[in-house]
Amino acid sequence: MKVIFLKDVKGKGKKGEIKNVPDGYARNFLFKKGLAIEATPANLKELE
């Protein structure tokens, strides 16, 4: 799953980066803790 990092996550990504991460990791950790959001076309446009 492609995500946009909202905060730095040690060993995974830095704020503003767009990366592919495992689906479970994104849903169960990154999204729940507010560390990242899904890289949807709308979210990507908002980032620019």
Rank of each mutant, 00 (worst) to 15 (best):
I18W: 03
D8M: 05
E17L: 02
L44P: 04
L30K: 00
F5T: 00
G34Q: 09
K33Y: 15
G13I: 08
L44W: 07
E38H: 07
G16E: 02
E38T: 05
N28Q: 10
A42L: 10
K2A: 14
G24Q: 13
K12F: 15
E17T: 07
M1T: 14
K14W: 09
F31R: 01
L6K: 03
V21W: 03
K19A: 10
K7A: 12
K10V: 12
E48R: 05
G13D: 02
I4P: 00
P22H: 09
G34H: 07
E48P: 11
A26I: 08
K15H: 08
D23K: 15
V21H: 02
V21R: 01
L47T: 09
A39R: 01
K12T: 11
R27Y: 12
L44D: 05
T40I: 06
L35Y: 13
Y25V: 07
D23E: 15
A36L: 01
I4K: 04
K2M: 15
G11E: 04
L6I: 11
N28Y: 14
E48V: 12
I4V: 10
K33G: 08
N20P: 07
K7Q: 13
T40D: 06
L30P: 02
G24I: 13
A36M: 00
I37E: 05
D8Y: 08
M1A: 05
F31T: 03
A42S: 11
N20T: 15
G13Q: 02
L35Q: 04
M1Y: 06
K2P: 09
M1I: 15
F5V: 00
E48H: 13
K15Q: 10
L6P: 00
P22E: 12
V3T: 01
F5Y: 08
E17I: 01
K2L: 15
E38K: 09
K19E: 02
V21A: 02
L47K: 08
E38G: 04
P22Y: 07
N43F: 10
N20H: 14
F29A: 04
I4S: 01
N43M: 11
V3A: 01
K12S: 11
K14T: 10
A26M: 07
F29T: 08
G13K: 01
A36P: 00
P22F: 07
I18R: 03
E46P: 07
L6M: 06
G13A: 13
G24N: 14
A39L: 08
K12A: 14
L6R: 03
I18A: 04
A39Y: 13
G16T: 02
K10S: 10
A42Q: 14
R27L: 13
E48D: 12
N20R: 13
L47E: 07
V21L: 05
K12M: 15
P41F: 10
N43A: 14
D23N: 12
G11V: 01
L47R: 06
P41T: 10
L35R: 02
D8I: 03
F29M: 08
K10T: 10
E46R: 08
K32Q: 09
I4Q: 04
L47G: 07
A36H: 00
K14N: 10
G11P: 04
M1Q: 05
T40Q: 04
P41Y: 12
F29H: 11
P41M: 11
A42H: 12
G24A: 14
R27N: 09
A39G: 06
F5S: 01
R27E: 09
A26D: 06
A36S: 02
V21N: 01
F29V: 11
K19R: 12
K10R: 13
N28M: 10
D23I: 15
R27A: 08
K15R: 14
R27I: 14
K15A: 13
P22L: 08
K15M: 09
R27F: 11
E48Y: 12
P41R: 09
I37N: 02
N28G: 14
Y25K: 05
V9D: 01
I4D: 01
M1E: 02
E48G: 13
L6N: 02
G11A: 05
L44T: 07
K19S: 07
G16F: 09
K7I: 12
N43K: 06
K19W: 08
N28R: 11
I18E: 04
K12W: 15
K14S: 10
V9E: 01
A36Q: 02
K7Y: 14
E17H: 03
E46G: 13
V21E: 03
L47H: 13
G13N: 04
L47M: 10
K32E: 10
K33R: 14
P22W: 07
D23R: 13
P41H: 10
G16A: 03
G34W: 06
R27M: 11
K32Y: 07
I37A: 08
K14L: 12
L6F: 03
K32V: 15
K2G: 06
F29Y: 15
V21K: 01
E17G: 02
K12P: 01
L35I: 07
L44S: 05
A36F: 01
K32H: 08
K15N: 04
K32T: 09
K32S: 08
K45E: 12
E46V: 11
E46T: 13
D23F: 15
K7S: 09
T40G: 05
I4Y: 09
F29G: 02
N43S: 10
A42I: 10
I4N: 00
K14F: 12
R27P: 02
V21F: 08
V9T: 03
D23M: 15
N28P: 01
L30E: 00
P22T: 09
E46I: 11
A36R: 00
A39D: 02
A36V: 05
K12E: 10
K33M: 15
T40F: 05
F5I: 01
K2W: 15
F5R: 00
V3D: 00
V3Q: 00
N20E: 14
L44N: 07
V21G: 00
G16H: 08
N20V: 15
I18S: 03
G16D: 05
R27G: 03
K10M: 11
F29L: 06
D8F: 08
K45I: 11
K19L: 10
A39V: 06
A39E: 02
G34P: 00
V9I: 09
L30V: 01
N28D: 14
V9F: 04
G24V: 12
D8S: 09
K10N: 10
R27Q: 12
I18T: 06
E48L: 14
E17P: 00
G11I: 02
A36I: 06
P41K: 11
G16W: 10
I37R: 08
E48T: 13
N43G: 07
K15S: 10
F29W: 11
E38V: 07
